[in-house]
């Protein structure tokens, strides 16, 4: 499919969504190019399954298209709304998967040695994702939104429907748990000089 460059770069998400609600297909194209990578990236980090993340991304975008006619400018941030939808969709999927595939999700990758330098970064990210998967849902969501998606605490509070204090507590506990989970792999991940 021929996807033209997002020519509406300066137009806000809000304005594009309202224009789409009025039947403008060009706005939908701009929003698709702008928001789908964010939605997919967040879903992939929560689910650690590319195919499922794509399903979630498509479903979240479909819900956005459906709500467009009722969208009012300035009422909410489009990305906040989307992160919230993705969080809920991923939570549902993880709950369904749990039980049968919990171990598969929670266990870090095995210790296969990395020969190539280019593999080290991949391995580090895999290790981080594996460690993230060991966290409780809320902690994982808060840490990913804060430290990878780059959202502020008030926005995360809105996404997760909790207080800002609760977000701070979740991210602090999440980070502490991550450092513990990754400690054993410190040498392999190339953090030798940080060893205490």
């Amino acid at each position: 499919m021929d996807m033209p460059f997002d020519a509406l770069n300066d137009v806000s998400d809000d304005a594009l969504l309202i224009a789409f609600g009025n039947g403008d297909a060009a706005s939908a194209r701009a929003l698709t190019l702008r928001l789908t990578p964010k939605v997919l990236g967040y879903a992939a980090r929560l689910l650690r399954d590319r195919a499922e993340a794509e399903d979630v991304a498509q479903e979240a975008m479909l819900r956005l298209w459906k709500i467009a006619p009722e969208w009012r400018q300035g009422e909410a941030k489009v990305t906040t709304w989307l992160y919230r939808v993705v969080t809920n969709l991923c939570t549902d999927r993880l709950r369904k998967k749990r039980g049968s595939a919990l171990d598969e999700i929670a266990e870090p990758e095995d210790d296969r040695p990395s020969q190539e330098a280019v593999m080290i970064q991949r391995e580090r990210i895999d290790a981080l994702n594996a460690a993230l998967a060991t966290l409780p849902d809320r902690q994982r969501e808060a840490v990913v939104l804060r430290h990878i998606e780059g959202l502020g605490n008030p926005e995360i509070a809105e996404v997760l429907d909790i207080s800002v204090e609760a977000v701070e507590s979740l991210t602090a506990r999440g980070k502490r748990a991550l450092t513990q989970a990754l400690a054993a792999q410190r040498d392999r991940l190339g953090f030798e000089d940080d060893a205490s």
């Binding site: 430290h147 502490r176 991550l178 990754l182 400690a183 410190r186 940080d194 205490s196």
Partner: peptide, 14 residues
């Protein structure tokens, strides 16, 4: 951290 990965290393991973 006393027995974990340092904050800086974790930030680098993020």
């Amino acid at each position: 951290m006393t027995d974990g990965l340092s904050d800086q290393s974790l930030e680098a991973l993020f």
